[in-house]
Design a binder for these strands. Sequence first.
DNA 1: CATAAATTGTTTAACTTCCAACATTGATGA
DNA 2: TCATCAATGTTGGAAGTTAAACAATTTATG
Lengths: 253, 253
Amino acid sequence: MRQSKSERQARIVAELRAAPALRVYDLAHRLTVSTETVRRDFTELEERGLINRTYGGAMRPISLEPAIAEREQLLVEERERMASCAVQLIKENDILMVGGGATTLHFAKRLAAECNHLTIITHAFSIAAALATNPLHKVLMLPGQYDGREGLIYGPDTIDALQRYRASKAVLGASGITAEGASDAGIGPGLIYGAMMRRSAETLILADHSKIDRISLSVYGEWSAHVTLVTDAQLPAGLQTHLTIAGTKLVIA
Amino acid sequence: MRQSKSERQARIVAELRAAPALRVYDLAHRLTVSTETVRRDFTELEERGLINRTYGGAMRPISLEPAIAEREQLLVEERERMASCAVQLIKENDILMVGGGATTLHFAKRLAAECNHLTIITHAFSIAAALATNPLHKVLMLPGQYDGREGLIYGPDTIDALQRYRASKAVLGASGITAEGASDAGIGPGLIYGAMMRRSAETLILADHSKIDRISLSVYGEWSAHVTLVTDAQLPAGLQTHLTIAGTKLVIA
DNA sequence: CATAAATTGTTTAACTTCCAACATTGATGA
DNA sequence: TCATCAATGTTGGAAGTTAAACAATTTATG
């Protein structure tokens, strides 16, 4: 055996530092192994997150955000659908408050791709970074204490600063959706989402089916006519009638 | 024609901001045009350097944000030495204001490794992220407009918020050091660094030898007895005597 | 409004990649 | 030594991609 498997795989990662993308066929020649071997290496390296696969090759992975990156891998299709639907509801020159989370991050990426000239107020690094890729948007970051695990800002300074803004729409994720309202697993973020709702004319809540009929620590939003719930599957009858009575609009992606 | 050619191509570039790689087939569906049209767009966009082609699709070109990453690679050793020296000057329970930049980022990483129980106020994402790896520190993020190219917050909100804090030390980078003071290439950051100095009892300025006797757009700090300059090489005689007269302390790493 | 030019869609054939099944090689250890 | 197992190579058909030619459509312009 010329080279061990791990040596070869290390070589592949190294090659990717030199060139941002590689073809299976080229690499097989360069390493004098079969294309199938290269393909199998690609599969393994992709599972370990060291490369990204493309049709016919592989490319250098973009970032290495761990905690969020993992969660972001789940329910990607559902979140994409919800994000696309939610973006339809945004108009040029809207002023948005956007909460943190994997789902709202999808939304932010679509916003950067499809919209222009928006002002976005947020407390999440990932959201700000995603939106700033489109220089036509204006991104305002809220002050407060930084939580590195979540990549979020929160605390009394954050709530306080929100009182000085007013937005046309708040766009929020949730870890639980019940008749009582939307809820989040953290108290700090929950308080911020509540404040964002109160300072916005309308609220969009994005929550996939796994969040339905679950309740989390901090309930931050009650159903009202100013709220639109965007989800990816039909709601249970009880919850649905409850929302209808409250006047909440429902969008199923 | 639904969308003009240039609109569509702009949209493609925007989509690439949301996802690092796209498939011809997917994109054709999403834009409701034929795969051939997408392929022809790819060809044109590649000639203009706005995308990179891959077999079956296209990917985001590498450029567009290596600004920080590249700079961070330069003079690593010198910066490490300066960072280590600067950390010696920090005491437990200090309250720090830390500016953005490659040099201060090295400092922040050492701070996370060597110190505990500090409160750090910053306007740079990278600094906040580096410090948050040590949960014993308290990291406060300043509000303001986010600049994705630099990863920095700035603007009137930022200056305003600084007025409500007081720190024991400000730790700042600089892109130029002259007898007149420290200067930065950007007006926005320059104003913030000035405000941070005024709100802090002492100031540490970190600048390697490549910054000496160069002047940048925005001069933000004058030499005084409250300032310490940390650098990695002897200063030219003229500058050195000027600092001595002003009472500025000098540390050579 | 008619013509030319530019843009986009359609079709087809050649080519490339993918995947799964099976064969081969080489190292390990009883 | 032989059996075993992991790693790799080989093969063929399915599926996907490309490129070139031509048709259809839209836009520009006199």
